[in-house]
Each structure stands twice: as C-alpha cells, then as structure tokens.
Design a protein around this nucleic acid. Structure first.
Length: 488
RNA sequence: CGGGGAGUGGCGCAGCCUGGUGAGCGCGCCUGCUUUGGGAGCAGGAGGUCACCGGUUCGAAUCCGGUCUCCCCGACCA
C-alpha cells in the first residue's frame, strides 16, 4: 500500500500547492514542451511545444497582415556602436548583451552584438529607406530569435535565447504612431483572450518599468496560477528617440525635413509559459483548443480481437470525419498502453477533448466525449456517432470558453482594491492589488522593497479617482490607480 | 552575480559520513504469453567511464580542489 502510494507520486507531477515552480518545470518537461540544453539558460523547444508556437504564430501573423503589416528579416548581428546611439537603450541593454569579438579566426575591428532586440539595426535601415512622407508609414514585422544574457532563467519565461516577433513601424505624425501603439496592444489583447483564453489587463508601464528608449510602453498583464503577474506582450511608443538617434527623416508635404515617429511591439515564446501557468492544473497542461496542436484525441478501447477490429474501424472513421471538419485530431492506436494510461498521458499533455470508443459505443452507435477543463464523470458524455462533428466542434468552443471563464474568475477573485497600506501589503501576498498611486518612481521602489510586488501597469480602463484620492503608500495626491503584484 | 540545495542506466532514488566483497532498488525499455471502459500481470532480458577535469591513495561513486548544468531565494530583465 505504501509502495503503491510511492509509485503514484513518482508518476505524478508535483502538486501546485506543494511547489508551484517545480510543478511548472514538471509540466513543461513531462508534456514534452521543452528540454534543457547543455548551454546555461538555453532550452530546446520540442516538437509539441513548437507546434503551440506555430499556432501562436499563425494566429498573430494573420492579425498583423490584417492590420497592414509585412514580414521581413533583419540580421542577427548588430554593430556594437549601433546599440550605443540611443542613450537609454544602451543603458538598459548593455548588461544583457552577448558580444561577438572574433570571426573567422580573427579579432573583429568592431565587436558585433547578438541582437537583444532590433530597434538599432532597423532604425539604421529605415533611415536608408525613408525619403518622403509618401514612403510612410512603414509597417514591418519580423519573426526571429534574440539573445539577452539573463542572471536567472526559467523554461519559456526567461531564457537566454528566445523566439519572438518584433514589429517596427515608422510614421509621419505622433498621432498616427500613438494610434499604432494602441492598435497593436489591442491586437495582442484580442489574441491573448480569444486564441489563448488568457484574460489580460491592458495598461501603461511606469517610467521605471518601460522599455529602454521608449517614450512610453503599453503592456498586457495576466495572472498566473500562483497569482503572480506576467507581462504577456508589450507595445512601445518610441516617439522620435530612435528617429533622432538613427536619422530617420522624411520630407513632409510642406517640404520640411522631419523626424519620423516610431513604434515597436513584441510577443515571445514566454507566452507559452503563460498558457501553461494560467490554465494548467495538477494533472498537467490544459491547452486552449484554438492553439492546441491536438484538439481531439481518439482512444480506442477493446478486449478481444473481434472487438479490436470493430472499434478501430469506427475510430478510424471518426478520425477521418474530424479531420475533414478541420479538427486537429489524433488516433492513439498504440497497442502497448491501456486506455487508462492514455487518458492520463493526454490529460498531462493538455488535449482539450478526448473521444473514447469502446465495444459498447460501437454497439450503440455512439462515442464518449470527455473535456479536459472539467474532470471525471462530470466532463464526460455519450453522443450519437451521427452528431460527432457537431458535438466535438461545439465542445471545443465550450472548452475554449470554459478555460477563459475559469481564468477570468480566478483573476477577479484574487484582485483587491486595498484601502490603506496595511491592506495593500496583504493584497499583494494574495494576488493583484489595484491602488491609487502618486506616480513617483521612489514610491514604486519602496513598495517593491517592502512587499516584493512591482508596479505592473497603470490600467488603461479604470474608473476616475475621486478628487481627494491619496497614494496608497505615501499619501500624496494620486491621479490614477496602478496594478501591483509579484511578477515573473 | 551572492546565499541555499542537487547531479549515480531513460525517470525517481539508495550507497558516500567510516575509501576495498559482484554498483543496487522501483518505474520505464526489449522479448514472450495473458490483459485492455481511468496509469495491467507473470516470466526472461538489455542498459551505467557514478556530471566533467584534476589531485590524494596500493585502491575513489565515496576524501580534497576546480569547472559545468539544473532547482529554490535575492539583485537584473520579455
């Protein structure tokens, strides 16, 4: 008995309540999303994890194209001097740079930086390409890898090298560039909520937290399963900072030479970490159907050879029907595992819908559907084979919605509006704290020191504060509420 | 980069303190038979330069020094 419990523990992943970090590592590895590489802080994204990334890419790329952007590719290496052209940018990124000093067996004249982000090289190229207002706006995105030398790394959430997309746009007017910054934030929020079922809070980063070189940064913040915050994507209004640093100028209608207004925006493989942490449970991953590499897995059940051939026939027909309807389906017809084993395996890997087909179902011309977001018998139900496609597609939509609702309710349940600093301190222990803030960087730093919580953002959508509102910490007048939380 | 923990067949661990007898256990893997509606059973079998480098010693998984990687906590960050 004791031994059985031990074995059970070995098979199972660490419960979230016991050790959230270990749970996360267990899920990522056991679900075969990623594995460690021999290089510190670098990971291998395995086929199943990469398939999620490909689905993220598809969903985002479609939105980028719909909003008029084109893809291009800029080089991995950037002359060291380019990074130094924008003062805040250098200061922000220099501690994180990987620098190449040798090539072809010889020391380089000028060291090359492995891009930590591409504002510099893209700024240089835009200066070459842009002549007149007729060339604007320039709306380009690139899918690539970047390298930032991190002190502490975690699978997907913070790795030395990561994959992302970075959009870089140049505009004739401030208004247009700001509109682009907001528009792309909306694109990210729409993607996060509709495709990934991750509810997000749109907001503006504080001065302290903004991108190095931006006038301001916008962000979408999501609550993870341990109630910490994660910045899921950012969109930056760069003003004319990079335009001035790289001489990105255009001749306007009035025949005057002007600096462009630029933006940049990005979403990385970190988002996969967000999906794991927002939806995952003690059984493992729970993938949102719209991004799941496998949306429905078919598990055949049989005893005798006769049953086997009958069941498999129905299972294969089921697979064909689902695929024909555009469902990403998979038939797990491996002989070496029992149905029960397969149930656990596919639950661990987060497949949203399971289709069980056994002798009883063959006889009654039905199939059994089980949904990943609701466990046990409650999430199971039998459906006539004739209604298969309809039922599965409907169920996928239901799971998508169910995951979003669960995540949203969880966030709302753990978001507080503390009345004073005492309540504030308790609130950031238990989740998000939305509180009036004076706007000073000093206050922000103090809060971080005293509570470990950081200023995640100033939410864009918020009720106006009463006239005499005071900062939750220092008591100075406050104009806005800021969202504070522990964060990854 | 500072503090703490870890690295032994694919996975989880024991052995180390007190150096020496064949490097062991569970899971997994391979073969065969029986099984299959929530992690199957029996029998047989394969698999490890004990993270790496160096030192002490007649002899090192075990003692000493260094390096690498991972996990946790902090400072830096998507």
């Amino acid at each position: 008995m004791e031994l059985e419990k031990e074995r059970e523990r070995e098979r199972a992943i660490t419960p979230r309540s016991e050790d959230y970090s270990q749970w996360y590592v267990d899920v990522v590895q056991r679900a075969e999303l990623a594995d460690y590489s021999p290089v510190r802080g670098c990971m291998v994204i395995m086929p199943y994890g990469y398939a999620i990334w490909e689905n993220i890419q598809k969903a985002l790329d479609k939105r980028f194209k719909e909003t008029g952007h084109q893809n291009a590719y800029f080089p991995l290496f950037i002359p060291y001097s380019f990074i130094q052209k924008e003062a805040e940018h250098v200061e922000g990124f220099s501690p994180q740079l990987a620098v190449v000093t040798h090539g072809g067996g010889q020391k380089l004249e000028e060291p090359l930086v492995v891009r930590p982000t591409s504002e510099a090289i893209i700024g240089y190229m835009y200066a070459k390409w842009i002549r007149s207002y007729r060339d604007l706006p320039v709306l380009i995105n690139q899918w690539c890898n970047v390298v930032r030398w991190e002190m502490r790394t975690r699978l997907f959430l913070r790795t030395t090298e990561f994959l992302w997309q970075e959009g870089h746009t140049a505009h004739a007017t401030r208004e247009e560039a700001e509109a682009e910054t907001h528009r792309m934030l909306d694109v990210y929020a729409d993607f996060a909520e509709r495709e990934a079922a991750v509810p997000v809070i749109k907001g503006r980063k504080s001065e302290r937290e903004k991108f190095a070189g931006a006038v301001y940064s916008l962000t979408i913040e999501a609550m993870m399963g341990n109630k910490w915050a994660l910045q899921a994507a950012t969109s930056h209004f760069l003003g004319q900072n990079f335009a001035k640093a790289f001489e990105i100028q255009f001749l306007d209608r009035d025949n005057r030479l002007k600096y462009c207004w630029t933006t940049s925006w990005g979403l990385s493989t970190r988002f996969i970490g967000a999906i794991v942490m927002v939806h995952g449970d003690d059984k493992g991953l729970r993938l949102p159907p719209r991004l799941a590499p496998i949306q429905a897995v078919i598990v055949p059940i049989y005893k005798s050879d006769e049953e086997r051939s009958q069941v498999l026939e129905v299972a294969r027909a089921t697979l064909t029907k689902l695929e024909g309807a555009g469902v990403r389906a998979h038939l797990d017809d491996r002989e070496e595992y029992t149905p029960g084993w397969k149930f656990h395996e596919w639950e661990l890997r987060g497949v949203p819908v399971r289709v069980e087909i056994g002798p009883r179902d063959v006889e009654q011309e039905q199939i059994v559907l089980a949904r990943r977001d609701i466990g046990g018998k409650e999430g199971k139900r039998a459906v006539p084979q004739a209604r298969l496609v309809e039922a599965v597609t409907q169920l996928l939509d239901d799971v998508q919605e169910g995951l979003f609702k669960q995540a949203l309710e969880f966030r709302e349940k753990h978001t507080y509006e503390p009345k004073d600093y005492g309540e504030f301190k308790e609130a950031v222990e238990r989740g998000f704290a939305l509180a009036p803030w004076c706007g000073s960087a000093e206050c922000e730093a103090q809060i971080q020191e005293e509570t470990k919580a950081t200023n995640r953002c100033i939410p864009l959508e918020q009720e106006p504060l009463p006239e005499n509102a005071k900062c939750v910490r220092c008591g100075e007048p406050a104009k806005e509420r800021a969202l504070f939380a522990r964060a990854y």
